[in-house]
């Protein structure tokens, strides 16, 4: 399949619905499971992930095409991407803390937690494998972030509702969370066929 010719708009919608980071690719599961017990914190984390995916996708695209490819060091791309992501997250956090402390309170504090979120590296790697252009990469980032954000919010909303539910002790906590995620993923299979980008 020729990925590089797909319209950025299609990529955007597909990365939310049919190629959702969590529900189709199971990336970024650790923070998704750990930080989803409360809706409010889940939204904060979702926003932070979205922001970081978009920014790092763009930066990594530039680095890949201007540094890695010309120097023919593609096999080092994982290390370089991770370094770039970590550095970017650090700088975004510091800048936020300094200039927009209010925003920092609501989502900046999650930034150190998601430096090594798999969804973020995953999104960069997908963009490389699929030979996206810069615009495609950015829209893919936005879509992936929004999709991740939506998924964690849905899960958090369900978990908040379930707080008083009587669960078998063995299922309480992570157990039931995985089952919910599985059912949500099944539901998302319903979107398949609308668009395909992977």
């Amino acid at each position: 399949m020729e990925f590089s010719t797909i319209s950025p708009i299609v990529i955007f919608f597909a990365s939310i619905a049919t190629s959702n980071m969590i529900l189709n690719n199971f990336l970024g599961m650790c923070s998704y499971i750990a930080i989803s017990s409360e809706y409010k914190t889940a939204t904060g984390l979702g926003k932070a992930v979205t922001l970081v995916i978009v920014v790092t996708n763009a930066i990594n695209w530039v680095i890949y095409h201007l540094v890695i490819v010309p120097l023919k060091i593609e096999y080092m791309q994982y290390i370089i991407f991770i370094m770039v992501i970590a550095a970017t997250v650090q700088i975004i956090e510091m800048a936020m803390d300094r200039f927009v402390p209010d925003l920092h309170v609501s989502l900046g504090i999650f930034l150190p937690l998601i430096t090594v979120n798999c969804a973020i590296l995953g999104s960069t790697l997908f963009m490389v494998i699929r030979h996206y252009g810069l615009l495609q990469a950015i829209l893919f980032g936005i879509g992936s972030g929004l999709g991740w954000w939506m998924a964690i919010c849905m899960l958090a909303a369900i978990r908040e509702r379930m707080q008083r539910a009587k669960l078998p002790p063995g299922l309480a906590g992570a157990g039931i969370t995985f089952i919910i995620t599985g059912i949500m993923a099944l539901a998302f299979v319903g979107f398949s066929g609308i668009f395909t980008i992977q």
Partner: peptide, 20 residues
């Protein structure tokens, strides 16, 4: 090249840390 990239990143972070 990997050292160069890490150096540049480290430099940017250090500068940002000093500034921000």
């Amino acid at each position: 090249s990997v050292t160069g990239i890490s150096l540049v990143l480290a430099l940017i972070i250090t500068l940002a840390d000093k500034w921000l």
